[in-house]
Write a protein that binds this DNA or RNA. Structure first.
Lengths: 342, 342
DNA sequence: ATGAAAGCGCTAACAA
DNA sequence: TTGTTAGCGCTTTCAT
């Protein structure tokens, strides 16, 4: 691999001149520029990013840390982060914690030792050790898919209240009056917002959703199954149910089918996320799409901006980007049956 | 962040001594070692990986390049590569080409400029420019999920012939005699192997699979749909069908349902991969599992070994690891109906 | 067993 | 506008 020095020798200039030509930050005469550029082309020179990274303490590298790979939401985050980062000349190091505290710590540490430009976190915990390290190091960081108590870390999220509202409005517009909801873990703020959006919209429209018909899940398939069992076993009446992600919605839907409830004839089901599986099922799941690409675009933008600004202390405005989710109409919602369900 | 120099000063030794203590490659007296280790602990020193990367021309970084994120197979590759790499102290840079030639080139180039230790490719093309670059640079590389014409690049694959055999054997054992198959793109060697495994096993057992009942797909959902349309429209008789990945199998299954064919009562369907969606469907898809974790473990092992050996020219043994797929029995296969299907 | 010094490839003062 | 020099943080001869 050719180095700056090779180019300099070939072009008959100093290495700093070559560096200037490459970085275009300091004026170089047109003539010299031409020579240097020719030399660069001739030996197909590309600056070594490790050397640059050592010198500048950043090297166009972004880290993304996700809690798991099984949920398509997280692979979508990785996908679009990589896509948008690469478009901007950044590469991305990927790390998956599996919600393992130690691994999260190791990951963060290694990323720091690599002089990365910034980190994007999906779903980090409020109490995470990571947050302290982030404070200490001043490393640009963005959190996506949830917010934290402390608001000094930039966040990109969807309008979670709106997602609940959209679900409720759609179901209400079909004529439903009795509802149930399967939430994510209630210690997460966005989950409470989603729930509020759903329940408040329903109540404002005169619909009914009992407290006991709001069942806490954990975003996994099985918790959708269990929630339906609970709802049915305790005799809750509902014709419309919203699960706060697609996996739970699918679990719920399958379970209802097993228990003889027809979707959407007897119960309408909605999810959130719009994962691939949601349209491969029969009936296809009506859901609410998260704008994954937009989320990542914003997150990457923030990292790049922060990293270029340097850590200008004054610049501590709170950054919070809120994006709008969108209804995806498919086959699991319909008007409620004429008479009340069992 | 503390540096080697800080440790050296604190311990009252030279930086080279500290380096030796860390790398344990050159003897250091027990006493000095103790001092240095204490100093390291005291200031919580961790060697900067960028500096090390510059100096050593490798920095415990592995690249993985996939063609897309939509197929769960590829995210699984990323998942387990990261998992196993991290276990060995490596981080991974992820790149997705979207089958875009230019991006593949840029990605490779950037990885090289980062002095990575090696690259894992999923599904690179035979004619790829990348292969030439790989030759030139001597960078450790492994290809997974397909083989290349040229065999000097290490490969980790499943026994694709066996996957076809397993599918056929299962269907035959249920009593099926008439078959169809939806393949991947036939220009890929593993696809031809899978097809051979399936067809040859069927024929050896006295079953029937017409040439025209082997339909070429492209591994995507839609091609499964189209294949079923073709098979049904052209009046092919079959009670057992194998699609060479789960997406096509699901497409096929949904399409058959739409056209009034009951799965598994009238037709048995099998896939390959064992993606998450396959068990969320109803009926759950009977399929063949790829040992994703094992594939990645092997790939990472090879990279690490190759990268540590250095490029010992003599050491050019062909590396090819073949792993066994495994039948996953679920609900889409059953004995064929008593009378022939339409 | 240890230290001094050079250098990986780059950028950024500082001089000229 | 350009070159010289130092240095990012580490490893590795080469001395001692």
């Amino acid at each position: 691999m050719a180095s700056l020095k090779d180019v300099a020798r070939l072009a008959g200039v100093s290495t700093s001149t070559v560096s200037r030509v490459i970085n275009k930050n300091i004026p170089v005469s047109e003539e010299t520029t031409a020579h240097v550029e020719k030399a660069i082309r001739d030996i197909n020179f590309k600056p070594n990013l490790v050397a640059r990274g050592l010198r500048m303490k950043k090297a166009k590298l972004i880290g993304i840390v996700i809690p798991e790979f099984q949920h398509e939401t997280f692979t979508s985050f990785v996908r679009f982060t990589e896509e948008y980062a690469e478009l901007n000349g950044y590469n991305v190091i990927i790390g998956c914690t599996n919600s393992n505290y130690d691994k999260e710590e190791r990951l963060l540490e290694n990323l720091l030792r690599r002089n990365i430009d910034g980190i994007i976190f999906a779903r980090i915990s409020d109490k995470s050790h990571t947050l302290k390290v982030l404070d200490r190091t001043q490393l640009p960081a963005v959190i996506i898919d949830r917010t934290l108590e402390r608001e000094d870390i930039p966040a990109v999220v969807i309008d979670n209240y709106a997602s609940g509202r959209i679900a409720a409005e759609h179901l209400l517009s079909l004529g439903h009056r009795n509802f149930a909801c399967i939430t994510g873990p209630l210690d997460i703020a966005i989950v409470r917002e989603r729930t509020a959006g759903f329940c408040e919209t329903i109540k404002a429209a005169g619909g009914t959703i009992e407290d006991k018909a709001v069942v806490e899940g954990n975003f996994k398939y099985d918790s959708g199954v269990r929630a339906v069992d609970f709802l049915l076993d305790s005799g809750k009446k509902f014709t419309g149910i919203w699960a706060q992600n697609d996996y739970m919605a699918i679990g719920a839907m399958n379970r209802m089918a097993e228990r003889g409830l027809k979707v959407p004839d007897e119960v309408s089901v909605m999810g959130l996320d719009n994962i691939e599986t949601s349209w491969m099922l029969r009936p296809k799941l009506t859901t609410i799409a998260q704008p994954f690409r937009e989320i990542c675009r914003n997150a990457v933008d923030i990292i790049i901006r922060l990293s270029q600004e340097g850590s200008q202390e004054e610049n501590k405005e709170k950054i919070k980007v809120v994006l709008q989710p969108e209804l995806v109409l498919r086959e699991t919602t319909a008007a409620p049956p004429a008479k009340k369900p069992a």
